[in-house]
């Protein structure tokens, strides 16, 4: 009961802030008589979302499918290479510093190049998503797999555990909290990656919709697209967050 009360309380202030901001926005567009092409008011955006619902859903799903595929591919390859790095230290020494450096680079700048190489279809978007999702996963998985205490290794060795057992029963579960931290970062990155790749060249997806709407000065539709993809991204994040709570139950989150 107390827990539920706390949850409601923790939602109350953010909700209030939301209502206040939307309210100020709504009123100020009226008071300052702002042109709807520059900044439509929230109500107009809401109407636009409702009237364009079908189109918005279609394009949002396309972008989310691209992001999801990219996310899965980036994750799998990231974890695989992390395992290779951990067991072949020469490979790690050679490539890991670049992985750390690239993690902090705006790889989105590659989007036009990827569209040129892989075409304006869905594939170039998946590659972009996978690429931006990949580096955080790689770096964090390496961190997680190597952060096992020496005493734990000693325990497993004294029980004559095989290398495989040390990996599956010690290193991998130990890495899970680190991996999930990266997964949550990568949910957002992969959605952004897909959208940006769509900006540069595509015939569908929310990025395409937003760019197209801008040609027609349909700012309300642009905002509608932004709202939809943001909501989808947030849903994606909380879905992974939920799985984390189920799988990494021993790690108490704040």
């Amino acid at each position: 009961m107390d827990k539920r009360k706390n949850r409601i309380n923790s939602w109350r202030l953010p909700l209030l802030a939301f209502v206040v901001i939307i309210g100020i926005w709504e009123i100020s567009t009226d008071v300052f008589n702002i042109n709807k092409i520059i900044l439509p008011d929230p109500y107009t955006i809401l109407i636009s979302i409702i009237t364009n619902w079908n189109i918005l859903i279609k394009h949002t799903s396309i972008t989310m499918i691209e992001a999801l595929f990219g996310f899965i591919i980036g994750t799998l390859i990231g974890i695989l290479i992390a395992i290779l790095f951990v067991y072949f230290s020469k490979a790690k020494q050679a490539f890991y510093p670049y992985a750390i450096a690239l993690k902090a680079t705006p790889l989105y700048a590659l989007a036009p190049l990827l569209v040129m190489w892989f075409g304006s279809g869905i594939f170039s978007k998946i590659v972009m998503s996978a690429l931006v999702a990949f580096f955080p996963i790689l770096v964090n998985t390496v961190k997680g797999l190597t952060s096992v205490e020496q005493e734990s290794y000693d325990l497993f060795r004294s029980l004559s555990a095989s290398k495989w057992q040390v990996f599956t029963k010690l290193r991998l579960p130990n890495a899970l909290p680190y991996i999930f931290t990266a997964l949550k970062i990568s949910t957002t990155l992969s959605v952004v990656g897909a959208t940006i790749a769509e900006f540069t060249g595509s015939s569908m997806g929310i990025g395409h919709l937003i760019v197209n709407a801008s040609y027609y000065l349909d700012t309300s539709l642009m905002f509608s697209g932004i709202v939809m993809i943001s909501l989808a991204g947030v849903l994606f994040f909380y879905f992974v967050d939920y799985i984390e709570q189920k799988m990494v139950f021993w790690q108490k989150n704040d």
């Binding site: 205490e149 005493e151 734990s152 000693d154 325990l155 029963k169 010690l170 579960p173 899970l176 139950f249 021993w250 790690q251």
Partner: peptide, 9 residues
């Protein structure tokens, strides 16, 4: 060992 080293999961 000095620490119990239990697996938290």
């Amino acid at each position: 060992f000095q620490n119990p080293i239990l697996l938290p999961w």
